[in-house]
Write a protein that binds this DNA or RNA. Structure first.
Lengths: 194, 194
DNA sequence: CTCCTTCCCTAACAAGTGTTTGGTAGGTTA
DNA sequence: TAACCTACCAAACACTTGTTAGGGAAGGAG
């Protein structure tokens, strides 16, 4: 099957991109990892850019499907944050290579080629989802009011996504367990209450 | 003065590296930003690698000077964490380009060339300083005991250093103010206590 | 058997890469 | 004045990069 082979190649490409960085990765390295020659990749893909493009869009599409489901569920602010965090860690589990690539290269890709404009869109959409929920939580009195909300947003956002840099699927903790502990730290802190 | 010019060139190189990534940056771009031609850089530096090397070592040397001072002060676990975080944000303020480079390229550089072995050393030293303090805090009963300590370590570490990806010197908040709010979130959480 | 599609290889291309070599304007020293 | 050092330029080098063109083996369809 044609689509199947593309998927395999994209998976190995994503792995190499995540490990070495997009720019540091050569087409020949991807071909090596896939057991073929560099030129042969161009039977399946139009360019190196097209590969990252497809990797990132596939990831973002699935991510937003999950996020939209959460946001449409009509939960309270705290429960929404909890659900978003859990969904994020599940996504890191499923697409850990794509997430790592997104983390490292998104900004650079976005303002280099208009082709990747959707990455900037995704960032704005992220901000709306997370910041909106946080603001709602502050208004509802479930989150603290003495914090700079934008600082809090970046704190929560980064806290979640950096995990992709060290998380490897099939590790000691399941995504849900990691999400539970992360949420516990973010919501209640690491200091012991007296 | 000779050293002075080198310092200027390293500063502009660091800025370009931080903005575009090490591999995506060409020597000609650095030379452009410095107002000279590519070859002329090689009067001052042996190679492109030597530039990042010098940028990173200068940053790490200063960082460890600060860390060691904190660790030698004989503070309690909570005060040590607070001091380390504050010191880290000061370092992000002073060396924000170097920190951004370290964040993005350290792992990749470390396992590519033995020249950058000190980056792996730095990571181990980081772990000892942070993890040790956290363990001491758990033993002393100032930090929670129900969390995976290694997860907590990565949480605190990443939480602090990702800030380099968005922080720009001279922004709304001073390093000390950011450190204060970060510490407040990490230690006490963002949820409102009842 | 023949035709056609799928999937890959061989071989090369042009552009861009880090780096080197030889030279030179201008200031400092003797 | 002469010798010298500093800081740069001009031009090229060898190599790697992403990409392309043409071809061919394998296998299913008619």
């Amino acid at each position: 099957m044609r689509e199947e082979r593309r998927g395999e190649l994209l998976a190995t490409a994503a792995e190499v991109f995540a490990a070495q960085g997009y720019n540091a990765t050569t087409v020949r390295q991807i071909a090596d990892a896939a057991g073929m020659l560099a030129g042969s990749l161009y039977y399946h893909f139009a360019s190196k850019e097209a590969m990252v493009d497809e990797i990132l869009t596939a990831f973002l599409d699935e991510l937003w499907a999950g996020y939209d489901a959460v946001l449409a569920a009509g939960l309270g602010p705290r429960e929404t944050i909890e659900a978003l965090v859990t969904e994020s860690f599940r996504e890191i589990d499923r697409h850990h290579a794509a997430v790592a690539i997104y983390q490292k290269e998104a900004r650079h890709l976005a303002d280099r080629h208009p082709r990747f404009g959707y990455l900037a869109d995704a960032r704005r959409r992220f901000a709306r989802a997370w910041l909106g929920t946080l603001e709602r939580g502050v208004a509802d009195g479930v989150f603290r009011t003495d914090l700079d909300i934008r600082l809090t947003y970046r704190f929560v956002r980064d806290t979640v996504w950096v995990a992709a840099s060290w998380y490897r699927p099939g590790a000691r903790h399941s995504p849900e367990e990691i999400a539970r502990q992360y949420l516990s730290m973010v919501l209640d802190g690491i200091a012991l209450r007296d």
